[in-house]
């Protein structure tokens, strides 16, 4: 194994950690804006979702798949229908007193948050094991 590959495993776990952290940030943003009737694009806030993609590096040695980790490539808005709530006193209410609310669904966000947090833990565990392995290998150099 070439020396340059020594920390590949660490870099891959790192990419997983930052991708999952980013997903948690987006989920937190969704929850925080669960009642925002105004957003940057004018209408009510739409829940956002992160798109993950495998990093496609250059082809590895001997036709082996390249190991580049993961990256969050895009944040997309959920196009599902926005619910309407009867709130006649609200400044955003239409003539019928209905207010269009964000399509944030709390149980769904909590489930996604849990998934992201478990995946983060798994990546962390991976990084810890990498450390253990290298600590074990270093004593071979000691005399």
């Amino acid at each position: 194994m070439p020396f340059s590959n020594l920390f590949t495993a660490q870099a891959i776990s790192g990419s997983g950690l930052s991708a999952e952290r980013f997903r948690m940030e987006v989920i937190a943003n969704n929850i925080a804006n669960a009642n925002s009737t105004k957003s940057a694009n004018g209408g009510p806030f739409r829940r956002q979702e992160v798109v993950f993609a495998e990093v496609l590096g250059r082809a590895g040695d001997g036709g082996m798949p390249a190991l580049g980790g993961v990256q969050a490539v895009d944040v997309v808005e959920d196009p599902t229908e926005l619910p309407k709530v009867y709130m006649p006193g609200h400044p955003e209410a239409d003539p019928d007193g209905m207010v269009t609310m964000p399509n944030v669904n709390l149980p769904m966000e909590m489930t996604n948050l849990l998934t992201a947090s478990r995946a983060y833990e798994a990546n962390l565990r991976d990084a810890q094991q990498f450390r253990t392995m290298n600590e074990q290998a270093l004593p071979i150099l000691r005399s």
Binding site: M1, N5, T8, A9, I12, S13, S15, G16, A19, E20, R23, F52, A53, E54, L67, G68, G69, V70, T115, A116, A119, A122, N123, D126, Q129, F130, M133, A137
Partner: peptide, 24 residues
């Protein structure tokens, strides 16, 4: 054996990092 184990660790890291990548 140690080379293979180090490579397998990279591969497992790759799998874990992509646990939420659709179609991986």
């Amino acid at each position: 054996l140690m080379d293979a184990a180090a490579l397998r660790h990279q591969v497992i890291s790759q799998n874990v990092a992509n646990v939420n990548t659709p179609g991986y």
